[in-house]
Design a binder for these strands. Structure first.
Lengths: 346, 346
DNA sequence: TTGCCTGCCGAAAACGTTTTCGTGTTAAAA
DNA sequence: TTTTAACACGAAAACGTTTTCGGCAGGCAA
C-alpha cells in the first residue's frame, strides 16, 4: 500500500527540483523536451495526480458547492440534487451535501461546518423550523463573509441573494381553475400552516382562482396541516383530519393539495367512502413525485421541475463564482410550472 | 464584504506572533492568561474559525467521506445517504456525493475527482455498467493507494474491502415461500439480467423456494428485464413484457418482483385484466420504497433497510479511518431483511 | 556573582502546490 | 575576446494551520 505520490517524491527520484517537475507536468516551455518527457513518463507510471487540497489552499477556492436541504428522502429534493450535480460536474465542481432535517440548529451547524473553507458557495432550501423562527442570521453572516448563496424553492425575501423558485401562486391557481373548468364547485384545499412560504403561496393561488371564478370561499373546505416532523403519526393524523373534512362537507367534488402525499391520502379516503374518481370527485396535487404517476388512479399534478431548478441554481452559483468583478445585482429565476393531467381529473 | 479572518491577521492586529495566537485559541498553558483572553476576545469578535482546507492539508485528512451511487432519485439510495449522513455528521465528517448514473465512465471520473485528496474514504454502490463490464480496476487502484472503500448493496466479491449487504437470496426465498404458503402454485418472477448481482441473488432465492417446496420450475414464468437505463421507454417496454407474460401464462396466481417498480407495474397489468388482488393473484416486491406503501392495493415487500445500511457503512468506514494500525481484516455485514405484509398478499 | 529553572513567546518547519524571480551555462553576436 | 541573449533549471514565497524547538527574561538557590 503505497501512499499517493507527490511532486516532491518525483523530484527526488528524478533528481530535479520540485519547480521543474511542476512545470514539466504543465508543459511549460521553460523546461527542455528531454526533462519534460522524462518527468511526464514517470508521473504517468506512478499515476500522479495533484493533491486537491493543496490546490484549494493555494488557489483559495475549492471547486466544491455546498448544498443544504431539509431532507433527501424526498423525490423533489433528490431531483434538485441530481440537477445540481449534473451541471456542477460538467463545470468541474463537486457537490457536498448537508441535511438539516427541517431543524434550525442542524441547518446552522451544517453551514458552519462547510463555510470554513470547505466550499465556494451554497445552494440551499430553508428548513421549516428556520422559516417558523424567522431567524436568518446565519445566511446573512455567510453572505457578508463573501460566500455566495443561491436559494431555491423555500426562499425568503429578507435575504439578498440569487433565487430559483417556481410561481407557486400561479401554479396552484391554474390547477384550481382546471378543477373549476371541469365542473367542480366545492373544492377542498389541503395545505400547510402559513409559515411555510410555498404553502402560503399555493393557498393564495387557490383563493385567487375561486375569486376570479366568483365562487364563494367556504373556509370549512380548507385544511391546514402542521407538519413539523413528517412521521408515521403524522400520516395517521392526516388521514383522520381528511376524514373529518369529508364528513363535514358532503358536497366536495374536487380537492387541491399542496403536495403529493396530501393528495394521495385524500384520494384514499375518498375511495374508502365509495366515491368515484374522477367521476364524483377530482384531485390535483403539487409536486414532481413518483407516487402521483403510479397511484391508482394516477394523480394529476402541478409539476415543479426539480431537476431544472437544480440545474438553474447551480448555473447561477457557478457563474457568480467565476465572475471576476463582484456582481452586485441578484436574480430571481422563476421556473414555469405545468399541469400534468392524469386519471384523477376529467 | 470582509473576507474570512486568519491567524495571521489576528496576530498582526494584536502585535503578537501567529504561533501565540494559535496557542492562545487552543488554550495552551504556554500562553499567559492575559494574552489568552485578549486573543480569544478578538477572535470571538471577528468570528474566527480555522480554515478547514489548511487543516486538511496539515493533518492529511479531510474529515470528509465520498459517496458514489448510481442515482439519487431513488428511494433506496436516498435512504442510504440519509443514514450515512447521520452517522458521518455525528462523528464530525462531511459527505460529498457523486452520481454515476449507472455509467462506468462517470463512476471512474467521479472517483478520480475525489480520490486526489478531497476525501478520506469511499462508500459506494457499483453501477450496472461496471457490473456488466466487470472492470474493477478503479476500485483496486484506489484501495492500493491507501484509501479505504466500503461497498453496499451492489458489491462484488473480487474486491477486498468492507461490505454491507442484505441477504438477497434469503430475503427473496422468504418472500416466495410466503406466496407458496398462501397457496400460490404458479409464481411468476420478474427480475433483471444476471449481471446485476442483487438480481441474480434474488432469482436464486426464488429458485430455492420453489425447490424446497417441490414446485416444478416453469422457465416461462421468469421475465428477465434489461434495464441499463431507466427511461420512460423502459417503463412502456416493461408493461408490454409483463402483458405478454400474463398472456402466455393464464394460471399465474403469484408474482415476485425484484424491485418495486416491476411489482407495481405487474399489479397494474393484473388489475387491467380484471384479476382480484390478493384474491386471484398475490404480489410481493423487493425494496424500501414509498410506492409500495401507497399503492392500491398496498404492496407487500421485502424491506431492505436502506437507512440502516447507510449507517452501518459509515460506521465501518469511519472506524477504519480512525484506527491507528492498519486493520487488514475486512468485514461483510449482512443486514436482515424482513417481509412487510400489506394488502397485496393474503 | 553564577547557575538553573520557569514562564512566556516567536521562529521555523511541515502539509503539496504554483509561480515569480533569479542564476548559471552555452551559443551567438559584436 | 568580450558582451549579450537564449535556454534550462532551482530557490523561495505563498495559501493557513499546528507544533516543535529554542530563546529571553526574571526569580531563586548556591
Amino acid at each position: 500500500m503505497r501512499r499517493k505520490i507527490t511532486l516532491k517524491q518525483i523530484a527526488k527520484e528524478l533528481d530535479v527540483s520540485i519547480s521543474t517537475v511542476s512545470k514539466a507536468l504543465r508543459n511549460s516551455a521553460e523546461i527542455s523536451e528531454d526533462t519534460r518527457e522524462k518527468v511526464q513518463a514517470f508521473a504517468k507510471l506512478y499515476n500522479y495526480r495533484p493533491n486537491n487540497i493543496a490546490l484549494s489552499l493555494k488557489n483559495r477556492q475549492t471547486k466544491t458547492i455546498g448544498v443544504i436541504i431539509p431532507e433527501i428522502v424526498h423525490h423533489f429534493f433528490a431531483k434538485v440534487i441530481s440537477g445540481i450535480e449534473l451541471v456542477a460536474n460538467r463545470r468541474g465542481y463537486n457537490v457536498i451535501v448537508g441535511l438539516s432535517n427541517e431543524s434550525f440548529d442542524k441547518e446552522v451547524i451544517n453551514m458552519q461546518m462547510l463555510a470554513n473553507g470547505s466550499i465556494d458557495g451554497f445552494i440551499l432550501s430553508i428548513s421549516k423550523e428556520t422559516l417558523q423562527l424567522q431567524d436568518y442570521h446565519h445566511f446573512n453572516e455567510t453572505i457578508s463573509q463573501g460566500m455566495p448563496i443561491v436559494m431555491f424553492d423555500r426562499v425568503v425575501n429578507d435575504i439578498v441573494c440569487d433565487k430559483v423558485i417556481i410561481d407557486d401562486t400561479k401554479g396552484s391557481k391554474n390547477a384550481v381553475r382546471k378543477l373549476i373548468n371541469n365542473g367542480c364547485r366545492h373544492i377542498a384545499l389541503i395545505t400547510t400552516k402559513d409559515y411555510v412560504s410555498v404553502g402560503r403561496l399555493r393557498t393564495m393561488g387557490y383563493l385567487e382562482a375561486l375569486y376570479d371564478n366568483k365562487i364563494e370561499l367556504d373556509s370549512d373546505l380548507i385544511l391546514k396541516m402542521d407538519d413539523k416532523q413528517f412521521s408515521e403519526d403524522h400520516l395517521d393524523a392526516l388521514e383522520t383530519e381528511i376524514e373529518q373534512l369529508f364528513a363535514r362537507n358532503k358536497k366536495i367534488d374536487g380537492v387541491f393539495a399542496v403536495n403529493e402525499i396530501y393528495a394521495i391520502m385524500a384520494m384514499k379516503v375518498a375511495r374508502k367512502k365509495g366515491l368515484k374518481i374522477p367521476g364524483d370527485i377530482q384531485f390535483i396535487g403539487f409536486t414532481d413525485g413518483v407516487l402521483s404517476k403510479h397511484a391508482t388512479p394516477s394523480l394529476s399534478t402541478v409539476s415543479q421541475h426539480g431537476q431544472e431548478m437544480g440545474e438553474k441554481a447551480a448555473t447561477l452559483l457557478i457563474n457568480r463564482l467565476e465572475l471576476e468583478e463582484d456582481e452586485e445585482r441578484f436574480q430571481t429565476i422563476v421556473i414555469e410550472t405545468n399541469l400534468i393531467e392524469r386519471e384523477s381529473t376529467k
